[in-house]
Write a protein that binds this DNA or RNA. Sequence first.
DNA 1: GATGCAAATGCAAATTACTTGCAGGAGGCC
DNA 2: GGCCTCCTGCAAGTAATTTGCATTTGCATC
Lengths: 141, 141
Amino acid sequence: MDIEELLKQNDLKVTPQRKAILAVLQNTNSFLSAQDLFQRVIAILPGTNFSTIYRNLDVMLAKGLLCRVPSDNGADLYELRREEGHHHHAVCKTCGASIPVDYCPMESLIQELDRKGFLPTEHCFEVYGLCARCRKGKGKQ
Amino acid sequence: MDIEELLKQNDLKVTPQRKAILAVLQNTNSFLSAQDLFQRVIAILPGTNFSTIYRNLDVMLAKGLLCRVPSDNGADLYELRREEGHHHHAVCKTCGASIPVDYCPMESLIQELDRKGFLPTEHCFEVYGLCARCRKGKGKQ
DNA sequence: GATGCAAATGCAAATTACTTGCAGGAGGCC
DNA sequence: GGCCTCCTGCAAGTAATTTGCATTTGCATC
């Protein structure tokens, strides 16, 4: 989808900073930390402040444009929520590769939670380990 | 299991601070942030430093005595790993109640990952939403 | 095209959660 | 009881993120 359309559909004003943020996210297959994103955004639009990045990540997250996943080191990671829909990741602890996983555990759990009266609104499912390359000792250190 | 036994079995020296940490965790059904844990430990053992808490959380995590789960606000949450074994949680965003969930998604995923050559070492699965009480508007705030 | 106003931004300082270096102190094998 | 190693307290440091505020900008309306 067109970036400007995406913003307008979500009642967000179209600003150069937001266009830069979404452009970076659209051109990235794996997910990014806020700081990585910041570095790439200022390459496109120098002068952009990091608080703008953080504020927009929050706004876009609230609008459902993005997904956020926790990571080993403190920094959360972000990625564009794509049309293909919801998915999870297996992340390699050595090289950082992020392998998409189609399976979503909520499918199996929704009934059990419903029986307990619990209404799920969000969930987090991430797998960490070693990818095939790194397992064979071929990944970057 | 006895706290001192637990420490010895894991090659950790038995110190008053460690006993206090484990005592707090044993008496807590849901999980705690490092800061909450710290507050409760100094109630038992005044003078304990928070760096001791953090260092011991890391050590005990590495030994597999504890589980850590990420949370909405920055702070990670910890709980004792109980004998009954591995489980996950549904956490109420209103009252903080943590409902244990027996189901583990890795069971369904292990084969798919294996086919891709990925070796999972850790995973995180948490569900957030509204518990039955809060759904009916009876929870705190 | 000018105007008004809420929303968005830049900047700098503050906050939060956690980490580290170091010197002294305490478990526990001998 | 001695010794060595691990553990702790303290204080300073760090990294990620948030906040307050003054200024600027998008964009609906005139």
